[in-house]
């Protein structure tokens, strides 16, 4: 199976996708296309180059982190505008037939590459983990959990940019 990770197109085959989490399967089947058309999320899929079948996907969107409830002195360290701009990796799923083959890692790496390439300003990448196991996966790759919500994880943009500076000596 030769996979490429590309923006979702109608020609990609969603039918039969089963990651083991019904809400993530349902999102791909019913709502992902709508969200793309409405501009609510960008959907990227890992597809077999041979038959266009989807074996994994992730979504990205822009978001903001409200910082207005913290003391003013600390707020200045975050953003004087009230929100810290962020990119949200809202969903990431791999079909059960393709699990334990490194596709989840490829999807995460691809999301990081696309995010760092994004022309808009953002300071943090936010990940919504669906359960503790998923959160542990992201922590292995440097994402930090919050204290009040362990399923929301963050990585500063500067950490992610460092991956590329280190790789290419730029």
């Amino acid at each position: 199976m030769a996979l490429k990770i590309v923006p979702f197109e109608k020609a990609h085959v969603k039918e039969g996708f089963n990651c083991g989490k019904p809400e993530l399967d349902e999102y791909l089947m019913k709502y992902a296309g709508q969200d793309m058309r409405r501009g609510l999320a960008a959907l990227f899929v890992a597809v077999d180059e041979g038959d266009n079948r989807i074996y994994g996907y992730y979504t990205l969107s822009n978001t903001g982190i409200d910082t207005r409830i913290i003391p003013a002195a600390l707020q200045k360290r975050l953003s004087k505008y009230g929100d810290v701009p962020a990119i949200r990796l809202g969903r990431l799923a791999v079909d059960q037939r393709a699990q334990r083959q490194g596709i989840g890692v490829r999807l995460l790496a691809n999301a990081v590459i696309r995010s760092v390439s994004n022309a808009s300003a953002w300071a943090l990448m936010v990940v919504d983990a669906k359960d503790d196991r998923a959160a542990a996966f992201y922590r292995k790759f440097g994402f930090d959990s919050l204290e009040d919500d362990a399923l929301h994880l963050f990585s500063p943009r500067k950490d992610l940019e460092l991956l590329f500076i280190d790789a290419f000596g730029a």
């Binding site: 409200d66 913290i70 809202g90 919500d149």
Partner: peptide
């Protein structure tokens, strides 16, 4: 990337 609603955190997490 598309727009989405903002995230609100506790003071401790901010």
């Amino acid at each position: 990337f598309a727009a989405e609603e903002r995230i609100t955190l506790s003071a401790k997490d901010q």
